[in-house]
Structures are given as C-alpha cells and as structure tokens.
Design a protein around this nucleic acid. Structure first.
Ligand SMILES: Cc1cc2nc3c(=O)[nH]c(=O)nc-3n(C[C@H](O)[C@H](O)[C@H](O)COP(=O)(O)OP(=O)(O)OC[C@H]3O[C@@H](n4cnc5c(N)ncnc54)[C@H](O)[C@@H]3O)c2cc1C
Length: 370
DNA sequence: CATTATGTTGCGAAA
DNA sequence: GTTTCGCAACATAAT
C-alpha cells in the first residue's frame, strides 16, 4: 500500500539513484510504467477480526465538544472530512468531462469566490481519497477525447504531487534549508513583526491579507494564491525564510502535506526547482487580472468593503475624503503597508542575485576540475 | 568539456 | 490593443 501513484524508490533507482530535479525528467522516468489497478475493498471487517467490544462506542472518534471546542463559534465548514465526502467530490468533478479535458492550471483563478480547482487536496492528503483511484478515473475521463496535457492538465497536477513526493523521499532535510542538497542557501532575515503581520493578514496589502485570512477561515486557498503570499513572504517582499511560511501553512492548511508543502515553498522562494527569481508577483497587479473589482478582497477584508474599485488593491492611494466615506481610514481601521513593494522587490532581486553567485562559487569549490 | 533548448503560473515599459 | 524586451542572467538535461 502506498500513498502515491508510482513507487518513488524505483523512480529514483531508474534515475541512477538520484532524484529527478525537473518535472519533465520525472515524467520521462514514469512514462512507461503501467499503473496497477486499485484494490477494491468491498467487505466490511470480518467477524474474526472484530474485538469483543467492536460495537461499543468507546472507540468512536471524539466529538468536537469532547475536545473542548464550541461548535457554534466556528465558521462554516466548507470541506467536511471523510472518505464519503472525498468520493462525492471526485464524482462531481469527474462528471464534468469538458471541464477536465480543458483544464489548464495557470489559467484558473486564485481569487474566485468559489474555488476554481477541485479542492480534492484535503482528501488526498488525509488518505480519504486514493491518488491511484484519482489517476484511473482521470484516465477514464480523458480517454478518447482531446485533452490538455501535463504540466497544466488536471492529470499534470497529480503528477506534480508525484514529483514532490519523489523529491521529498530522496532528499535529506527536505523541509529545511540547511543540510538540504537541493536547496539554494539564501541569507533570509528574521523579522517577527513582519512574519506576524503576514500570518494574520495585516500587511496592508489587501490581496495578500485576503488570502491569508481565507487560509485561516477556510483551510484552503488556491494554488496561485499560495504563490502570491509565499512570494511576498520570501524573495518578493519580506525576505523571511520559506521555513517560517511553511510552518504557518502547516498550521492552517487542511491539505498540509510534508513533501508538497516544503517542495512548493522552495519553488516559490526560488530555492529549488524554479530559478527565475526576477519573476516577482505584485500584490497590486496580480489579483486584478482575474478580479478587477476586488470582490474577493471585499469578502475576506470586509473593512475595505466600501472602497471604490479604483483603490481596492491599493487603498493607501485613496484620498482621505474617500477613505472616510468608505468608512475605513488607512492606519486606523486597516494597517499601513509594512513594506513598499515597488522599492523592496527590486532590492530583493539584487539580494537573490548575490545569493546565487555565492552558491555557484561554493558548488565550483566542491567539485574542482578533475 | 562546451553549447543549447527548455522551463506550469511576473511585471511594466517600450515598441 | 498586442507583442517584445529588460530584469541580468537562472539551473538542468540533452547533445
Ligand atoms: C507554498 C505552497 C505550499 C503548498 N502546500 C501544499 C500542501 O501542504 N499540501 C498540498 O496538498 N498542496 C500544497 N500545495 C500545492 C497546491 O497548491 C495544492 O495541492 C492545490 O492548490 C490543491 O488544490 P486542488 O485540490 O483544488 O488542486 P487541483 O488543481 O484540483 O489538483 C488536483 C490535485 O493535484 C495535486 N496538486 C495540485 N497542485 C499541486 C502542486 N503544485 N504540487 C503538488 N501537488 C499538486 C493535489 O493533490 C491536488 O489535490 C502548495 C503550493 C504552494 C505554492
């Protein structure tokens, strides 16, 4: 039994003992692997395996009340747990043949009010939904029809998961920078005030704050929303270690997964797998592409609800009068920006540049010419 | 060994 | 309005 579609040990073996460092390389390694059918378990627990008190309620999952949680104080549960819910969700999406066959991840929206991707991740991460079952259902839906391809297709998404599992399983200290052979060493700085502002959704950048608040409230945010806030915390704006961000994600993501979280954080911080560090997300421009009027911001940062669309992504630019009319003065009802993106992101590109230089020199030292 | 093609998903100014 | 280029050159895999 395994948690992945492919056996990552044999993938690594096939690659002469080292992990594939690119997605395309990974795909080529698994291209001729026949994925076995899933095992159907239809029977219940057989009688001889049942303890004498099998039917007693003593082994039931404790209720929220027993954990000391007052259910009425919780916000709506958007993604209820369990296998039945996971299978139901899988069925809903697999029934949309057109949608699956046209799926292109980079074109999906990070800030739609309802998720633009499947949100199967919490179920897959918790073992409520088998990655192999997802694989076979997807093959079935794609079969015979024209469809998009990895990396952008829905199947491609599942392959990203396989890719990161392979990398994570074959790399020491994969969830850290130090001692991690695939991770570029970058001199991140500690800044507890900035880290706290980021984690609480109080950076003063409405799009970033909306995403962090959705994460806290609902436990799931879109992949590109993760890009936005991960870039902002690390190489884009705050220059704080990706490990700090990963810890916050671990606390709040319903779909938290050791390999996927660490791997994607390294990607976003241009520490591994992705290297074009001058591609920096703008907290003002990025969200506008898919949500010009900032409806998403208005939902998760309600103090800005009444702002005109012109200023919803950069409320500090609104004249005082407009701020007052909208019922929220910047610096009082909503925080001032903790950094100036236009300035710091340029400085940070320079810092990335020198970090890469140092790394290159170190690598050259380690492997002198034979 | 050197060279070259490729890479999920940036942005903003210039042409 | 659309395409191209700068950021300043990235790493990896293939040849
Ligand atoms: C900084 C950062 C941290 C992340 N941390 C996690 C995490 O802890 N757990 C987690 O499951 N995903 C993580 N992801 C990956 C990705 O964002 C989520 O898997 C995806 O958004 C889940 O939504 P979905 O099920 O609707 O995805 P879909 O687009 O519907 O994809 C289907 C499935 O493919 C897999 N998948 C999709 N995208 C990725 C990806 N980039 N990498 C690996 N597998 C992927 C997931 O299992 C997902 O359920 C992270 C991404 C970033 C940028």
């Amino acid at each position: 039994m395994q948690h992945t579609v492919y056996d990552f040990n044999s993938v690594v073996k096939k690659n002469n003992g080292s992990i594939p460092l690119t997605y395309q390389k990974f795909l080529s390694l698994v291209s001729d692997v026949q994925v076995k059918d899933i095992i159907q378990i239809s029977k219940g627990v057989s009688d001889e395996c049942k303890a004498s008190d099998y039917d007693s309620q003593g082994y039931d999952i404790p209720s929220l009340e027993e954990f000391g949680v007052n259910e009425s104080e919780l916000s709506e549960c958007k993604y209820p747990g369990g296998e039945s819910e996971g299978l139901k969700r899988l069925d809903v999406y697999m029934a949309k043949k057109q949608w699956v066959c046209n799926f292109e991840k980079p074109k999906s929206s990070p800030n739609s009010i309802e998720p633009s991707t499947t949100v199967l991740s919490p179920y897959i991460s918790h073992g409520c939904l088998s990655a192999k079952l997802f694989y076979h259902k997807l093959k079935q839906v794609e079969n015979g029809s024209k469809h998009t391809l990895p990396p952008v297709s829905l199947m491609g998404q599942l392959m990203w998961r396989e890719f990161y599992y392979t990398a994570g399983s074959g790399t020491e200290n994969f969830d850290k920078m130090v001692g991690n052979s695939v991770c570029t060493q970058i001199p991140w700085k500690k800044n507890d005030a900035h880290l706290k502002a980021w984690a609480e959704g109080k950076t003063g950048y409405p799009f970033v704050d909306a995403i962090m608040r959705q994460l806290k409230q609902e436990g799931w945010i879109h992949h590109l929303a993760r890009h936005m806030v991960a870039c902002f915390l690390t190489r884009g704006d705050l220059w704080i270690s990706w490990e700090e961000g990963a810890k916050v994600f671990e606390d709040f993501l319903l779909d938290y997964d050791w390999s996927l979280n660490a791997g994607n954080w390294m990607w976003l911080s241009a520490s591994a797998f992705f290297y074009k560090y001058y591609r920096v997300y703008s907290p003002v421009a990025f969200g506008k592409k898919t949500d010009k009027d900032g409806l998403y911001i208005r939902k998760y940062v309600p103090e800005l609800k009444k702002y005109p669309s012109e200023f919803i992504y950069e409320p500090w630019k609104a004249p005082k009068g407009v701020q007052k009319t909208a019922g929220c003065v910047i610096g009082e009802g909503y925080p001032n920006r903790i950094v100036d993106h236009d300035k710091v992101h340029k400085d940070n590109i320079q810092k990335m540049n020198s970090a890469y230089k140092v790394n290159k020199e170190k690598k050259a030292m380690k492997r002198p010419r034979q």
